[in-house]
Design a binder for these strands. Structure first.
Length: 1048
RNA sequence: GGGCCUGUAGCUCAGAUGGUUAGAGCGCACGCCUGAUAAGCGUGAGGUCAGUAGUUCAAUUCUACUCAGGCCCA
């Protein structure tokens, strides 16, 4: 027996059962182990940080990942996929700091790094349970048991191997760089971290006067960071920019000519000069807190100087700006940095010592004003980065010694390799990611924090250094305990984190080497996952090189462009001169219904678990994939989920239920051999052909990673073709009591459609697909798979394109006919005498063949295919612009008008292939057949409807017989409704008694065979209705009528 | 300020190598159909295809600019 009443079970409940089934029967494991080892499809899981709650956008990314992997499995690939967790880094530390009430980095040291890192380690797994639950519940198949975890020694060892390799290649170096840093955590921010904090803010915008040493003149200089003025060492001008010397308010000022608009009040231009004329001019130090050890305080050239804002003269503070630092190296300028790492002025700056630099702005401006060095002060609104973890803490650009990876040395290669990656959507790869690579800057690798992979570089007092690339090498080091050296090899439970690794020393050539204290950017951890997840090169060397690298497919959110996508790509390029991934789907954000970003503070987030409980994971997954392409921002709308469930899943399940209901009645179990396709009725061949067309389309889209189109195609087929046409049209064949070849063919056909649709649906909605597949296959045992996810992708078995086209025509005619009936208030139950169809010649044959389908569908007795040159067809002509456009150019409009006015005669001539000669503006023109579209819109005296070359007309005249038949149909309809209301089974036989007026009774009697047959009535008696049975009163047309039915 | 994307019906989305009737679903109104369907079908109302300019015989489609939204980068 096929399982029945599927439509009455809740989706979440089915899903729970399927989950149990998968688990108990290890279906996921089998979906890998049963696939050929030599046909691997490699997928990389981007490790989420498990210390935050999973949200709906994670469901989106995971759905995409899962469905591609499941699809590839269907296609016979072996898709091994390991889960992974990102466990290091500042986000983890921030959480721990919060819980410990730590506000500043120094407090961590007081608290104890060992204890602190232990807390970090513990906190990482706070949400792991939730993540695993979500992963399992949504049906995301990934190996959670063998998940890679970035804090594991093995993982770190692989990362160290990578770092040592880069170090030995000379790609890691130490330098000053101006880096954005979070003054609160005293930590350098990576560009991706920095990006999180940009927001609009008000800052002072001040114009400052720098006095020339050689003249009583002033340079007018603009800045939005007054606190950096204390560290000023030079002024930069654009050598080719025009400057002016002006007299205003009794002072002589120098500024760019294009910036004169910043001058308040009247001025007089004294002199015009080029920037290069100013080079070398010395000026008086603005504030004298700091001494310099080199020549400073003069005008230099800077190519970054613009006249878009400010005064065209840029103040240079090498410690606090990237451009500043670059240019200062060129001129060998001193660097003044009277600011601590936490953004506070040092004692040197006596007036502002201990003040946070941004807070000192006002005081500095006041001092300038007092000393007459301020020209004017305004406030500007601009975007400025703030710390992404500490609200209202502005990022400070600061010169720090840092370790860098020389990614610029492979920048070109990265660009080249990127061109071989298939990005979905392509513009992210070519545009966003490509541009980022073009502008590549060296990767700031080090972080002065605690909970991360330690940088494995050991340095001696004289600056000699080496990198350690394995635990084996580390064992050559020692630690000191009470003055005794203990070899690392003898240490139990090695932990490759701080503070332990900091205790390890090496002695080489009589020198002692100590580890540099920094840890590394967590993004290096995740970028190293292709090899680190397999502990390469210490283990799995062969498999890695053969199978696990590079990935065939990855998928993450757009926010990973500069994050994981970049680090994967950069590391793979540097280490293996290869891409890290061949195909990538980039998914966009999920916004709320109103297009707002979802965030905890807005309270508009969606809890995935709620959705799973309410609608099921399948519905959620299907919705996310089909609503809009994943690489477009999705506006999340819960009501649309309801619709998805009703429309697609409802229809699919009902189609299955229909099949199950009748297959059980007929004891169909597919034990007979299949009826050859070419022996099946037309409608069966048609749906099988359509089904195969769907498989083709699906495969094409999936292989192009356009998963939305693939899923939409499945949905359209299921709803429009399978359910609303095939099943509806074929219902009667299933009702028939006797089993014959024709009926067998119907069962086999519908069965095949359901199994195939289940397979195509399975990557997207793995639960319901499993349910349907198993319900079918367990009974028939047609395939030897215990799960749809172990099955093979359907192969193309049968196509009959001409038949598909024919049915298209028939469907079009039916739709038009129904439109006429609707417009003229002619119920479909009322049979009509005749319809006429006018079509183009090449479709006439198709139409004739589809006659029966059409007539049955629209309840009309006769179909006349009309010759379109028949007298009663009225034709009009229309210009074919595609043809006349290129031919007649400017005369198009006149020609079109001419064609529109063609009469019967011209149309006939054109149709017979004759050219029509005409004259416009004195030029002779020839209008040929291709230039004209002939339409047969009207048939004289008939109601018509037409569309794209098909015109349908129906004869609305009724006769007595037709009216009687209409009444009989109405009667059947009432009886059927009663059967349903009475709760009779579809196979129950009944007796009917009825009363009504003479006309109705006559109709019923005349059509009694038809009525009995339709309603499974043994007796159909016109009599006074007595008590008993199930009775209802009806109005049929204008007639009253009472009906009683009883089960026999 | 720069880069990329988006703007089509009240809402969510299709589509168009440039061609004269721009589609679907939801919602609304009316009607139909129902022996699987808490379904389905039809009709109707609803669109200056964001705006402006240009190229062209012809632009919603191509180009430029503008506006609005989003993301990324400064």
């Amino acid at each position: 027996m096929f399982k029945q009443n599927l439509e009455k079970i809740s989706y979440p409940k089915i899903e729970e059962e399927i989950l149990k089934f998968w688990q108990e029967n290890k279906i996921f494991e089998k979906s890998i182990s049963t696939r050929d080892e030599n046909r691997s499809f490699t997928f990389y899981e981007g490790p989420p940080t498990a210390n935050g709650k999973p949200g709906i956008h994670h469901v989106m990314a995971r759905t995409l990942k899962d469905l591609v992997c499941r699809y590839k499995t269907l296609k016979g690939f072996r898709v091994e996929r390991k889960a992974g967790w990102d466990t290091h880094g500042l986000p983890v530390e921030i959480e721990v700091e919060k819980s410990l009430g730590i506000k500043h980095k120094s407090e961590v040291i007081e608290y104890g790094i060992e204890k602190y890192n232990q807390k970090c380690r513990e906190s990482v797994f706070t949400y792991l349970d939730l993540w695993e639950k979500m992963t399992t519940r949504m049906g995301y198949w990934i190996d959670l048991d063998s998940a890679y975890i970035t804090l594991d020694n093995k993982y770190i060892e692989s990362v160290w191997w990578a770092l040592k390799t880069l170090f030995d290649k000379g790609l890691i170096y130490k330098d000053y760089k101006i880096v954005p840093q979070d003054p609160k955590s005293e930590t350098v921010l990576s560009s991706h971290e920095l990006a999180l904090g940009y927001r609009e803010t008000k800052d002072p915008s001040v114009y400052v006067l720098f006095q020339r040493l050689d003249a009583d003149e002033y340079f007018l200089v603009w800045t939005t960071t007054p606190w950096t003025l204390i560290s000023n060492v030079a002024l930069a001008v654009g050598p080719d920019i025009d400057y002016v010397k002006i007299k205003t308010n009794g002072k002589v000022l120098i500024l760019a000519k294009d910036r004169l608009s910043v001058i308040d009040g009247d001025y007089e231009i004294l002199e015009e000069l080029k920037g290069k004329d100013l080079l070398g001019v010395e000026y008086e130090q603005l504030f004298d807190y700091c001494d310099v050890d080199r020549k400073a305080f003069y005008v230099i050239a800077g190519d970054f100087v613009s006249t878009e804002d400010g005064s065209g003269i840029v103040h240079i503070a090498p410690a606090f700006g990237a451009d500043d630092y670059e240019v200062s190296k060129k001129y060998n300028l001193p660097m003044l940095q009277p600011v601590t790492r936490s953004g506070v002025f040092t004692d040197e700056v006596t007036d502002f010592a201990g003040q946070f630099v941004k807070d000192a702005d006002n005081g500095i401006i006041l001092k300038l004003k007092k000393e007459g060095k301020l020209y004017k002060k305004e406030t500007i609104l601009h975007t400025y980065p703030f710390s992404w973890r500490h609200q209202d803490v502005p990022v400070i650009y600061y010169a720090r010694e840092s370790w860098f990876i020389r990614t610029t040395s492979v920048a070109k290669r990265m660009v080249e390799l990127n061109k071989t990656i298939n990005w979905q959507p392509p513009e992210v790869g070519a545009g966003r990611f490509g541009n980022w690579l073009e502008e590549n800057k060296d990767w700031a690798l080090s972080r002065d924090r605690f909970w991360a992979t330690p940088l494995p570089i050991w340095v001696s007092d004289d600056g000699d250094m080496f990198a350690v690339g394995s635990i084996e090498e580390l064992k050559q080091g020692f630690i000191e305990d009470n003055g005794k050296r203990i070899s690392v090899a003898d240490v139990e439970n090695l932990d490759l984190h701080k503070p332990f690794v900091d205790k390890i020393l090496f002695e080489r050539n009589g020198k002692i080497y100590k580890r540099t204290p920094e840890v590394i950017d967590v993004w290096f951890d995740s970028g190293a996952m292709p090899f680190a997840q397999y502990h390469y090169p210490f283990e799995n060397k062969e498999n890695f090189e053969k199978k696990f690298f590079p990935a065939d497919f990855i998928c993450e959110g757009i926010d990973q462009t500069r994050g994981w996508f970049y680090t994967l790509h950069a590391i793979a390029t540097m280490l293996f001169d290869s891409v890290a991934f061949r195909n990538v789907i980039v998914n966009e954000l999920i916004l709320d219904k109103n297009g707002m970003k979802m965030s905890k503070s807005r309270g508009n987030t969606v809890d995935p678990f709620d959705l799973f409980d309410k609608y099921g994971a399948d519905t959620t997954r299907w919705y996310l994939v089909t609503n809009s392409p994943p690489w477009r921002p999705t506006l999340f709308d819960e009501e649309a989920l309801v619709e998805v469930q009703r429309k697609f899943f409802g229809t699919l399940v009902n189609t299955y239920s229909f099949f199950a209901l009748y297959a059980n009645i007929d004891k169909f179990n597919f034990s007979d051999s299949p009826v050859p396709y070419n022996e099946r009725p037309e409608i069966d061949r048609w749906i099988i052909s359509k089904l195969n067309a769907l498989v083709e389309e699906y495969e094409k889209q999936m292989d192009a990673y356009d998963v939305t189109k693939a899923a939409r195609a499945v949905s359209d087929f299921t709803i429009d073709q399978l359910s609303n046409w095939y099943v509806r049209r074929s219902r009667r064949r299933f009702w028939k009591s006797e089993m014959n070849k024709e009926k067998l063919s119907a069962y086999q056909t519908l069965y095949e459609c359901l199994v195939t649709v289940a397979k195509l649906t399975s990557p997207f909605a793995p639960f319901i697909a499993e349910e349907i597949y198993r319900n079918l296959n367990t009974v028939t045992k047609k395939e030897n798979y215990e799960s749809v996810h172990l099955a093979d992708f359907p192969s193309i078995t049968y196509r009959e394109p001409e038949l598909e086209e024919k049915m298209d025509v028939a469907q079009k005619v039916v739709y038009l006919t129904r439109a006429i009936r609707a417009k003229n208030n002619l119920k479909v139950r009322q049979p009509l005498k005749r319809m006429m169809v006018v079509v183009e010649k090449d479709k006439r044959d198709a139409l004739a063949k589809m006659k029966d389908v059409i007539l049955d569908e629209v309840n009309i007795k006769e179909l006349v295919v009309l010759d379109d040159d028949s007298e009663i067809v009225n034709k009009t002509a229309k210009a074919n612009f595609k043809s006349i456009g290129p031919k007649f150019g400017k005369k198009v409009k006149a020609v079109a008008e001419l064609i529109k006015n063609f009469g019967k005669d011209e149309i006939r001539r054109i149709e017979s292939g004759e050219n029509i000669e005409t004259e416009i503006d004195g030029d002779k023109l020839l209008i040929s057949k291709d230039d004209v579209e002939i339409m047969s819109h009207q048939i004289e005296g008939w109601v018509v409807e037409s569309e794209e070359g098909v015109t349908v007309a129906i004869d609305t005249e009724l006769n007595e017989k037709l009216i009687e038949e209409g009444l009989a149909r109405e009667f059947v309809n009432r009886v059927q409704n009663m059967r349903k209301d009475a709760g009779f089974d579809v196979t129950d036989k009944i007796n009917i008694s009825f009363t009504g007026n003479a006309e109705l009774v006559k109709a019923i009697i005349n059509f009694s065979d038809y009525i009995s047959n339709e309603t499974l009535a043994e007796k159909l008696i016109s009599e006074k209705i007595t008590d008993g049975g199930f009775r209802q009163d009806w109005k049929i047309g204008d007639f009253e009528c009472s009906i009683r039915i009883e089960k026999i």
